[in-house]
Design a protein around this nucleic acid. Structure first.
Lengths: 94, 94
DNA sequence: TAGCTATTTAGCTAATTTCCTAAATAGAGC
DNA sequence: GCTCTATTTAGGAAATTAGCTAAATAGCTA
C-alpha cells in the first residue's frame, strides 16, 4: 500500500503509468517522453516495479514494461473505499 | 494534483484523512492517534491543508480540521479515470 | 571476438522530507 | 495582566529522493 502511494507521488511515475495504459513499451520508448536521463528513468521504473505497479519482461536485449492494473486498483480504490467513496459516488468525470 | 499525491504519500497523512471521515477533529485529538510529536503532526496538517485535502477552522483556542472530500475525489478519481478505471471497473471491495 | 544498442548499476551531489526540542503565539479564565 | 491549554513556528539533524555522469552488463550481429 505505502509502496504504491510512494510510487505515485512522483509526476513522472504517474505519467509512465498513463503511457502504459495503451500497452507495453520498452524502457527506451518510455524514457523518450521525459526530459531526464535514462539512468534516472531506470530508477523510476525500479520503484514502480518494486511497488508492483509494472512488470518488466526482458526480451531480446530490451525490456518491455507493462502495467499491472490490479495492484493500482487494489491500493488506490481500497484507500478510496476506506474513505467512504463508493463506485456510485465516484462519478467525478462524467 | 501533484500536491494531493505528495500529501497522500505519507501513511500518517492518509490515516489522518481516514480519521476525519467520521467528522471534524481538533489538531490535538488527531495528534493523539500517532506516536510522533505534536509539532510533527502540525507539519502533516499543514501539508494536507496546502493540498486542499483538509480545512482548518480556528475556534476558541483550538483548531478543528475537517475533510475536504471533493479535492481528494477530483485528484484521485481523476487520475484513475485517466488510467481507464471507470466506476464500473472499480468494484474492488464488493 | 568485436562492436553496437539497450538498459542498469555505481558513485556522487543537491534538494527535500521527516522528525525532534525549544520557543513563540493565541485565546480563555481567573 | 497572568496563567493555562492548544497549536504553530524556528532551527537543526538524519534519512531519503532525485538527478547527474561514467562504467558495467546483456544480448544481438557481423
Amino acid at each position: 500500500m505505502s509502496d504504491v502511494f510512494d510510487a505515485l507521488s512522483h509526476p513522472i511515475r504517474r505519467q509512465v503509468l498513463e503511457l502504459l495504459k495503451s500497452g507495453g513499451k520498452t524502457a527506451g520508448e518510455l524514457a523518450d517522453h521525459f526530459p531526464v536521463s535514462k539512468p534516472t528513468m531506470s530508477g523510476h521504473f525500479a520503484k514502480l516495479k518494486a511497488a508492483g505497479l509494472i512488470l518488466g519482461e526482458n526480451r531480446a536485449g530490451t525490456i518491455t514494461y507493462t502495467l499491472n492494473m490490479s495492484t493500482l486498483q487494489e491500493a488506490v480504490m481500497g484507500f478510496m473505499g476506506r474513505m467512504g467513496v463508493s463506485r456510485e459516488d465516484a462519478k467525478e468525470g462524467e
